[in-house]
């Protein structure tokens, strides 16, 4: 876990509102319009995470790709490792939205799941 450099400023990415957050030396968050912003600021300063979205090659379908995402945010520094896993993965139709394509990717407590239903 990183030792945060305080005070800090950042843009909240939890929702499209994009609040400008300020975090003081005591880790108090201001500028957030909702509690999720405060949680985001603390996570971002200690162990930043991101949801990764991409696509996976799909066979047995006129649609060549199925979109995917990580079911939970994963550590930011693991983004490219997760992308490499996604590249290694393939799927065959039918696929259901939410279907797990990679279970517990790299042991990060998140699955890679399909985000579109594609019938065969």
């Amino acid at each position: 876990m990183n030792k945060p450099k305080l005070p800090a400023e950042m843009i909240c990415i939890v929702c499209p509102r994009g609040c400008r957050l300020r975090v003081d030396e005591e880790m108090n968050v201001t500028g957030n319009a909702c509690p999720r912003g405060a949680a985001y600021a603390k996570t971002e300063l200690t162990h930043p995470t991101r949801t990764v979205t991409s696509t996976v090659a799909l066979s047995e379908s006129a649609i060549g790709r199925v979109p995917v995402k990580t079911s939970a945010p994963i550590p930011k520094e693991k983004i490219f490792d997760v992308m490499a896993e996604i590249h290694r993965c393939g799927a065959a139709a039918p696929v259901a939205c939410g279907q797990v394509l990679i279970k517990n990717v790299l042991g990060l407590d998140a699955d890679v799941v399909a985000t579109r239903t594609v019938k065969s």
Binding site: C15, P16, T51, T53, S54, T55, P67, V68, K69, C97, T115, R116, T117
Partner: peptide, 24 residues
Amino acid sequence: LQCVHNGFGLHRYKEELTGPEYAE
């Protein structure tokens, strides 16, 4: 369908969805 990134649906569904999920 081509917006595979997330950030959709926070107002409407109170959760963060990708474009294809929102469309579905």
